[in-house]
Nucleic acid binder design. Structure first.
Length: 114
DNA sequence: ATTCTGACGTGGG
DNA sequence: CCCCACGCCAGAA
């Protein structure tokens, strides 16, 4: 974890997001220590295209809006993936966001040795 | 080294 | 609640 670059760190955390739950770019950035680098997390996800192990669709902005949908193949692939996990999405807005939100800084631990 | 660029976040109006 | 402006930081060119 310590000798991983920013991108890889983002991937490590992203992979830990539980099925049917979502987190935000800012939350990941915060967990990584660079709370102000939320934008970079998004960019990292962008670079993760191809890595099917990385559930980039479970990462949204702080409001629970699928701002990154544009970067997925189809026009609504991101939403489909989320819905297939039981997450309700309406007009790019995740419903019951607070319920499905998963904060790595609160529920994640022991990644130092990853 | 310098400049540009965001899948963001926050604060103020 | 919505919109705007500004801040931020790691990579790419």
């Amino acid at each position: 974890m310590k000798d991983l670059n920013f991108f890889e760190k983002c991937y490590v955390v992203a992979k830990r997001v539980p099925f049917g739950r979502v987190t935000s770019y800012g939350a990941i950035a915060k967990y990584l220590g660079t709370a102000r680098a939320a934008r970079m997390v998004g960019w990292a996800m962008n670079a993760s295209h191809g890595d099917i192990d990385i559930p980039a669709h479970r990462v949204v902005n702080r409001k629970g809006v699928l701002t990154g949908k544009h970067h997925f193949k189809g026009t609504n692939l991101m939403q489909q993936l989320l819905e297939s996990e039981g997450i309700e999405v309406k007009e790019l807005q995740i419903q019951n966001f607070k319920e499905v939100f998963w904060d790595p800084s609160l529920e994640l631990n022991g990644l130092e040795d990853v």
